[in-house]
Design a protein around this nucleic acid. Structure first.
Lengths: 167, 167
DNA sequence: GTATCTGAGTCTGATTCACGGATTCAGGGT
DNA sequence: ACCCTGAATCCGTGAATCAGACTCAGATAC
């Protein structure tokens, strides 16, 4: 009762199982989004990805292995005529489902770090439509709240935090 | 003409000014999203953030400074009665506008790294509505394309890539 | 069958960065 | 004068990154 205002509600909840943490364990390493960008724009081969994204070889090897291990990419054999069989890296369903994340990042960057010439990369609705694609937030009631009208709250899986210093 | 199929279209474009690169220069460092999560859920003070997110002090100091420098956070003075004035960290407009990124990450994580007890964190429409908020992709024509119906393409600011080995 | 080319790694040593524990610093209270 | 607290800095260790050299496995060339 004494200093309720000074302790945010969120402090009561554990971060141990937080979805952001678990997601960032996969995507949070350096170069991950650069690598994903390449696969999303259709660059699928080790040497092509490395050359375009300028990722150190060793790091690229590690990251590709991690993404395959976590099921975001799969290795697909291919063969350039007159060369041996090699593998290229393709998005799985789980990988494709990162699209909103990528588009949201690009959207933010285009707004707050704009270039004089306009966006160097755009998301486009394939096929006949061809229109520019953006992401929007929408609630289950159909509203499209502005950022300030949204709140991050503990959900059903939230656990109370155990503060070590109980004494 | 000879091996058109083997060189993806995207290989012709430069990555130098890519929006993802520029965005990740700010957000791509370790701990950034953990830190942002704390501010988004309402934890705004150095020691609270550090304790909950378990970010090393030095790193937290650096990251906060970077986010302030880039205009995603601002320092706001506050004073707990009987203590000296201190600062807390609050989202600016630019910071708030990362909401779709955060929600998209959580959405992906909840789908592909689910917990038995359900999501530990949810985005909620504030106020009377209170419904769960999610992100969707939508094109300018009003369609809501599935991930596979979206393509990342070079935009107006795209530059042709300069391949060093011209000889 | 020997040389050579290419894409995809692996190896290596130097450098940067993260980490955690201790220390400092700036007020404020007793 | 002494202690307390939140925030920040210092510092030694350990991990990750990086660039460049090297390896490897097929494939063609001679």
């Amino acid at each position: 009762m004494i200093q309720e205002q000074t302790v945010p509600e969120a402090m009561r909840w554990s971060t141990e199982n937080c979805t952001i943490s678990r997601t960032m364990e996969i995507l949070g390493e350096k170069w991950m989004f650069h690598l994903l960008r390449e696969v999303f724009v259709g660059v699928r081969r080790f040497e092509d990805i490395r050359a375009r994204a300028e990722i150190p070889r060793q790091v690229l090897t590690d990251r590709l292995a991690a993404l395959i291990d976590r099921g975001l990419l799969r290795r697909e054999p291919y063969r350039v005529p007159g060369q041996r069989e090699r593998y290229e890296y393709r998005l799985t369903k789980a990988g494709f489902d990162l699209y909103p994340v990528l588009v949201a990042l690009v959207q933010w960057g285009d707004q707050y770090l704009p270039l004089d010439d306009g966006p160097p990369i755009v998301a486009q609705h394939r096929g006949d439509c061809g229109e520019k694609v953006s992401v929007v937030m929408r609630c289950a009631a159909g509203h499209e709240p502005a950022p300030r009208e949204v709140a991050m709250r503990p959900g059903p899986g939230a656990q109370l935090r155990v503060t070590e210093k109980l004494a």
